[in-house]
Structure formats: structure tokens, C-alpha cells
């Protein structure tokens, strides 16, 4: 991975791309959702922090990618708009949802994991791999040439998913 082929995702955002790009993010209690079309080497990563957008639509600013429901919908639509994606060709991998700090009051990580699973199922997207929970941060690198994800939990060796 070089600085030239690296796409970095912040909270409440998604990035899409194709080989040879690598999409990176770092997580605590947030979730990274990686969608991939193996036949076209196209992928996208979404970094959500909340399970449900209900009650947020009326706010003057509404960052749709912060939420599992609107974020997954928008990531899918963007991928379909930018690329021709055959029906049912996408698979998903999900990471994060830990409880790193006692200062974070709610156990939002678990709620994010549950909501993500339900929404992906509604879109007929199969989760083929995941590493969720725990109490440490996670660094995620999504390689779009292979669809592999290098997931590194703090203090541990990177694992390939």
C-alpha cells in the first residue's frame, strides 16, 4: 500500500473504488462494512457509528453515512451508480463494534453489529467474514485487488479475512 493508492475513511463516510486501491479506517466502537464484487474487483467501505437514523432526519444537517440503515443504502446506491454490479454479486465483511473506553457511556458497538447484520440481510448481502466486539481498537485495510481485509487489533498481529 502506498499513499497514492490509499483511501482513508472517517466516521460517517464511505469510499468506493477498484483495484489496486486499498481502503483504510481505524475503529473503536464504530463498525466498518466492506462490500465487494469479486468478479469486477470493486469494493466499498462504510464507517458507521449508529444503528438507526430514526429521529435524525429532521435535523438541519443529517450525515446519512453515520447510520447503518441510511449508510448501507447509500453505499449500495453509489456503487451501483458508479459501476455495473451484477445482481447478488456483492458479499460483505464487517469489523469493529468494540467497547474501548469506559467514558463512552452506551454499549453502542453491539447495537451497531446487530443492526448491520439485519440490514445486510434485507439487501440479500451475505456476510462472509467478520471480526467484531472486544475492547481494543481495530485498524482495517481493505485490498480491492483481492477483496481481502487485513484486520489488526491493537497489540496483536494482523489477521487476514
Amino acid at each position: 500500500m502506498t499513499e497514492n493508492n490509499k483511501l482513508v475513511v472517517g466516521i460517517g463516510d464511505y469510499k468506493i473504488g477498484e483495484a489496486p486501491y486499498v481502503i483504510r479506517t481505524t475503529l473503536g466502537s464504530c463498525i466498518a462494512i466492506c462490500l465487494y464484487d469479486d468478479s469486477k474487483k470493486i469494493g466499498g467501505m462504510l464507517h458507521i457509528m449508529l444503528p438507526d437514523s430514526s429521529g435524525h432526519h429532521e435535523k438541519p444537517t443529517f450525515k446519512r453515512a453515520k447510520f447503518a440503515d441510511t449508510g448501507i443504502h447509500d453505499l449500495l446506491e453509489s456503487m451501483k451508480k458508479q459501476y455495473t454490479i451484477p445482481k447478488d454479486s456483492l458479499t460483505a465483511k464487517i469489523f469493529g463494534g468494540g467497547k474501548v473506553l469506559r467514558m463512552v457511556t452506551s454499549n453502542i458497538g453491539e447495537q451497531n453489529i446487530d443492526a448491520t447484520k439485519i440490514i445486510l440481510k434485507q439487501h440479500n448481502i451475505r456476510i462472509i467474514n467478520s471480526k467484531t466486539g472486544g475492547d481494543k481498537g481495530v485498524q482495517v485495510d481493505f485490498f480491492l485487488d483481492t477483496g481481502k481485509v487485513h484486520c489488526r487489533v491493537f497489540g496483536e498481529e494482523p489477521e487476514e479475512f
Binding site: C30, V104, I108, Q139
Partner: peptide, 25 residues
């Protein structure tokens, strides 16, 4: 204080988490 060893990105995101749940800025 709470002393935490982790990725800098994780430390920072945990700092802003509670506020970012409500606000985008």
C-alpha cells in the same frame, strides 16, 4: 484519568464519540 494504549485513530474517535452521536460538527 484513564490511561489507554491503542491506535491514535481509536483514541481520537473515542474522545469525540459521545458528541458525534448527536452532532456532525
Amino acid at each position: 484519568p484513564s490511561v489507554i494504549r491503542d491506535f491514535s485513530g481509536t483514541l481520537f474517535s473515542e474522545l469525540i464519540m459521545d458528541m458525534a452521536l448527536q452532532e456532525d460538527k
